[in-house]
Write a protein that binds this DNA or RNA. Structure first.
Lengths: 119, 119
DNA sequence: CTGTATCCCCCCGGATACTG
DNA sequence: CAGTATCCGGGGGGATACAG
């Protein structure tokens, strides 16, 4: 069943790679995995992210139905972001990658160092 | 068990994203999953990849110990690339992502279309 | 066949300033 | 607090030409 062919340039799944290929996106999803969070909370939690990239990332996730945005009409404003079911379903695959990283990243770094040494 | 901690600069997740956060890298690994392949074969398999990016991607994978490069001193030249054990171990996690894509990408595209419609 | 070398455009993304 | 608007520098990556 080849409903999608990632090796074809016009395959929608390539857009998925654009999705999870973005560092900030993965970090935001990881942050929201702990539960709903406010804009400023996410910003404080992810060190080094700019307002522009945080907003841009959240908009993309919202657009793709992976995150919901809830505005509380208060003063001062309060906006909460939360993973949707689809967004939560990404946690499994991402966890698998994380486990791989934990297991193999040391070897990768060793290989890289060895490569540089012999270069 | 490793806590998902995207906020630490030395978190494996961040380094992993530098590794496979690139579209071409994932596609090349996917291609080599079927077995060893020549440069030109990979080039043909991956629609839209440029010589520059293919070579660059293969060099990075070789440097990181995920792919081996074997040169056969023939005329014309023949170079085969093959996944290492470490490279093959990435297949599981990447497969999980691929499965997620085939399962949820339709919904993502629907959500995106709906978002555009109401925008 | 398997690359390397160069030019160069585009756009990502950081910095900064402003607003409801 | 939660954004938006704008500028701008750096680099990713395509196109092209050339080499072993």
């Amino acid at each position: 069943m080849t409903e999608f062919d990632p090796y074809s340039s016009d395959c929608p799944t390539r857009r998925l790679l654009d999705l999870i290929g973005d560092t900030w996106t993965v970090l935001v999803i990881g942050t929201l995995a702990a539960g709903p969070a406010r804009y400023s909370a996410i910003e404080r939690r992810i060190d080094g992210i700019s307002q522009k990239m945080l907003t841009q990332t959240l908009r993309a996730l919202e657009r793709d139905g992976l995150v919901t945005r809830t505005v509380y009409p208060e003063i001062p404003p309060k906006v909460e972001y939360e993973l949707t079911d689809a967004g939560r379903s990404l946690q499994g695959p991402l966890k698998a990658l994380e486990d791989w990283a934990t297991t193999h990243m040391g070897g990768v770094l060793d290989a890289r160092a060895e490569y540089e040494r012999s270069a």
